[in-house]
């Protein structure tokens, strides 16, 4: 009896989370998958007709938005790496006794609601707002200059909003590096640049890898930034899905687009993992 209970313990421990995921993830996912193959409308209702054209039609109409989302996601993710790495590096190696304070300061803005932060960006960057207004009146910028309603504004907002998801994993990876391996590299005639390139960078790559997954996926499917900071020319696939679902009640189109996006993200992440996540890549960097 005791032995049986011992054997069951791991499964019992998994049960709550497993049930949670089943009810709130697996079942809705299967349901949405079936919706993506339905045809119908609000008046007649929907029927599962295995209408694969939902996918091709979605791609035909919104393919450009899908591509734009992947493109914005890519740029914002790279921008996150560029901004997050030096900050994480500085905190991990030069933060001294105040490491947690610096991390907290970095994360402080993110205690404010996501939507509120994005809207406040809009207030700051508005055409005659506190930044652009004075610059224009001093003649430093042309009158027609604007930041909002541009891809630049959307990507900046995305970068800002998802920065902590890049900082934290990189910080953790850097923090875990045994400082003596760095000293060993110096001892073995490596200069500062070489120590970084051969030891610190390869050892922190797993953190960058985790950060990329944690930012690229939500950034690509985000719709708040494009809605608040972008204009009609910067619509992302998230906005399309939201509009199709809540405004146009085209549930089948929204579902088909969601699954298309999901498939693209999974393919992208797996390709990335294959290319960067292997031991050989790290070793090549150290050689």
């Amino acid at each position: 009896m005791r032995r049986l209970r011992g054997a069951l313990t791991p499964y019992l421990l998994m049960l709550p989370a497993g049930l949670w995921l089943l009810v709130f993830f697996a079942i809705p996912l299967v349901y949405m998958a079936s919706v993506s193959l339905m045809t119908g409308n609000l008046i007649d209702g929907w029927k599962l007709t295995w209408h694969w054209q939902n996918y091709t039609e979605g791609l035909d109409v919104y393919g450009d938005k899908l591509l734009r989302s992947l493109w914005y996601g890519l740029i914002a993710t790279v921008a996150c790496i560029v901004l997050a790495y030096p900050a994480a590096y500085w905190i991990a190696f030069k933060g001294g006794r105040h490491k947690s304070t610096w991390l907290f300061l970095l994360l402080l803005p993110f205690f404010v609601s996501f939507v509120l932060r994005t809207i406040s960006w809009k207030l700051v960057l508005t055409d005659n707002g506190p930044i652009l207004g004075p610059l224009k009146s001093w003649g430093l910028l042309p009158d027609g200059f604007h930041v909002l309603d541009s891809g630049f504004a959307v990507i900046s907002g995305l970068t800002y909003n998802f920065l902590p998801f890049m900082v934290l994993p990189i910080y953790v990876a850097l923090e875990r590096i045994d400082y003596r391996t760095i000293e060993a590299a110096y001892d073995l005639y490596a200069g500062r640049v070489e120590v970084f390139r051969r030891v610190v960078l390869p050892l922190s790559l797993p953190g960058v890898f985790a950060g990329v997954i944690m930012t690229f996926v939500p950034v690509t499917s985000d719709y708040v930034n494009a809605q608040v900071l972008g204009g009609p020319g910067n619509t992302m696939i998230g906005n399309v899905i939201q509009a199709e679902y809540f405004t146009n009640s085209n549930y089948h189109t929204a579902s088909a687009l969601s699954f298309t996006l999901m498939a693209l993200l999974l393919i992208g992440i797996f390709a990335y993992a294959r290319a960067l996540g292997t031991k050989d890549v790290l070793e090549a960097a150290g050689r």
């Binding site: 391996t181 590299a185 001892d187 073995l188 490596a190 051969r198 031991k279 790290l282 070793e283 150290g286």
Partner: peptide, 26 residues
Amino acid sequence: NMVFQSYALFPHMSVFENVAFGLRRK
């Protein structure tokens, strides 16, 4: 050259690359 208390080997490199590290830098 130094041999560290906890060895401080480069965990991302093979034994060969660990040993070759100093020679490559030179």
